[in-house]
Write a protein that binds this DNA or RNA. Structure first.
Lengths: 345, 345
DNA sequence: CTGAAAGCGCTTACAG
DNA sequence: CTGAAAGCGCTTACAG
């Protein structure tokens, strides 16, 4: 395994020698962990620059028993929500010079969750972020030691001590209320199969109907992979003449529903109002431009890291852990042209 | 910094003691780096299981000067292509028990590229994968030491010694040919601003026109963020009556173009055929269902890791590096309803 | 086949 | 403020 590293990179000893100090002094300089004489500071700085020295994060991690890194555990790694959240976590982590490790989970392979978690933790990260939009994420929580800083993203309130959730339920409620405000007598709902959390769009929809005393028709649940099911839902709804407004669980579903509605001769928004969720980039281009609810995944990721870092920092400083809390990241409704006021004949 | 780790996890010494052998023997057992007596094998295996021992990847990395991990450098971390490719890399890496680190690059902040690369390499990964769809990726290559195994994903042929590219150009050529086969006299093109590579959809489009001797009208280049530009392109094209077929650089663009075309009274596909690229999931739901070209990003990611691993393995075995090569991952046309045969009046 | 020793590159008590 | 020493948890020549 002896690799010919060529001229290997400089190590702390080289810096120390060049600066005429000991390695521990360089270490203290780097970590700000003790006061260093002014002249030595200068010499060390120069030596570092001259050598192009970079501390080995691996050696540091071995010594500290902990790496400056976060692991994120997430199912659906290629979903927009996941990757946008990752991006936020990474950006915030980078500012603290933390590295990001991604370990994907697989809903279809729950048996591997434990092993994947172990793998992710084998690097001894300073903390973990778990996206708890689904069962795999929830399961992952079981395998993470209680003493490791964790932040849960998404999920139900109370699933984690430290949690950042998007306003799923609030958003669902808002969109439904909006339709009700437009005088629709009630709002039908085509839902994606949701995880077992209560912070869901569907619950928000129900909240609004209950609050207004509107009729609650069981939601039609469609697969999030086979969009044809949404089209079929649209057809079914289109055949009922009590359907004037539909809240779709996401934008793809909304599109499918609109398509199905049209197939059976109902126009959107003239005959039926349809709103989506997620505000995907194709929404504004749709005909009609799709009204939707925009979530800020990037922001969620950034907040998740910051919340994690607070815990890590406190631990490293020997301070008390920060107060556990749930942060709700609000989204924003984007009103466009796919819904309109209900006008009875 | 002394953390109360509670009961710390078992280390190799604990296993050795319990099995009645030395630590190096356990190490050799774990790595298959020497023959071990049958009875000791058994005892070691039992001790490992009993203790729930897991080797410290950090200690191992320090000793080996290299971590069992890959870094991927990529701009546009939340783009579907990026995240799907990441997923492929991660899946293939996991099989080899390699960890994945993600470092995002930022086109808008080229100055930070060097620092980001250094950060990503600070962990001493066994290799790096660079997504070279844009300038940031290309720049990143400059900062990665030549002796580190690298695989370039995307980009021009020949940018890297080891490269996996999708059939961008081939795909563009195919789609254009398809339209020409439908008797359109020529095909107009609305392109996204492309990176400085030659393996582009636009070049494929040009290839096809040249091959058939069709008229080449300069492509309209639109931003990949502001979809309104695509709509505007659609309007402009719609006003010319020599426009009967449009190859859009991707599906969002295609949708925008269709919208613009409609605004000026041209129907798709009756008056103008429009095809997209990428085969996003909303394509089939569009009216008309969008004809597009589907790429296999996941597969690209998997191949990228495998190609990287070959290099890593050879290096570790002290063997010759594998032959440099470029693998082209083919996509697949998805013919739907947005294009049709040209019928002159 | 296997053990004692040294080393990977840091950090942190312990003295001074 | 600063250095010598020991340790983090592995791996790898070196002997045997």
């Amino acid at each position: 395994m002896a690799r010919s590293t060529g001229h290997s990179r400089p190590v702390i000893k080289d810096v120390a020698r060049l600066a005429g100090v000991s390695a521990p002094t360089v270490s203290r300089y780097l970590n700000g962990t003790a006061r260093i004489a002014e002249d030595k500071r200068g010499r060390i700085a120069k030596a570092i620059k001259q050598l192009g020295y970079e501390p080995s994060v691996v050696a540091r991690a071995l010594s500290n028993r902990e790496m400056d890194s976060v692991v994120v555990f997430a199912a659906n790694p290629s979903a927009f929500s996941t990757s946008a959240t990752n991006h936020g976590v990474e950006a915030a982590a980078r500012r603290r010079r933390f590295l990001l490790n991604i370990v994907s989970l697989d809903e279809a392979d729950m048996d591997s969750v434990e092993q994947r978690v172990r793998m992710g933790l084998s690097i001894r990260p300073a903390g973990a972020v778990v996206y708890e939009y689904d069962r795999a994420g929830i399961r992952a929580l079981d395998y993470i030691p209680k003493d490791l800083p964790i932040v849960v993203v998404g999920g139900s309130f109370g699933d984690g001590d430290y949690q950042v959730v998007n306003a799923e339920r609030e958003g669902g409620r808002w969109m439904t209320m909006h339709l009700l405000d437009l005088r629709h007598e009630t709002v039908f709902h085509v839902a994606r199969a949701a995880g077992p959390t209560d912070n869901t769009r569907t619950n928000g929809w129900r909240d609004a109907l209950e609050e207004r005393g509107a009729a609650i028709h069981e939601p039609i649940v469609v697969s999030s992979t086979d969009l044809e099911e949404a089209v079929e839902a649209g057809r079914r709804l289109g055949k009922r003449d009590d359907v004037t407004a539909v809240f779709a669980g996401n934008d793809e579903t909304a599109i499918g529903v609109i398509k199905g509605l049209r197939e059976v001769g109902r126009q959107v928004p003239d005959d039926v109002s349809v709103v989506g969720f997620d505000d995907q980039n194709f929404g504004p281009l749709w005909s009609p431009a799709l009204t939707s609810y925009s979530q800020n995944f990037r922001e969620m990721g950034e907040r998740a890291f910051r919340m994690l870092y607070e815990q890590v920092k406190a631990r490293r400083d020997g301070a008390d852990a920060p107060q556990p809390r749930v942060e709700v990241v609000e989204g924003q409704p984007r009103l466009r042209d796919s819904e309109t006021e209900y006008v009875p004949w």
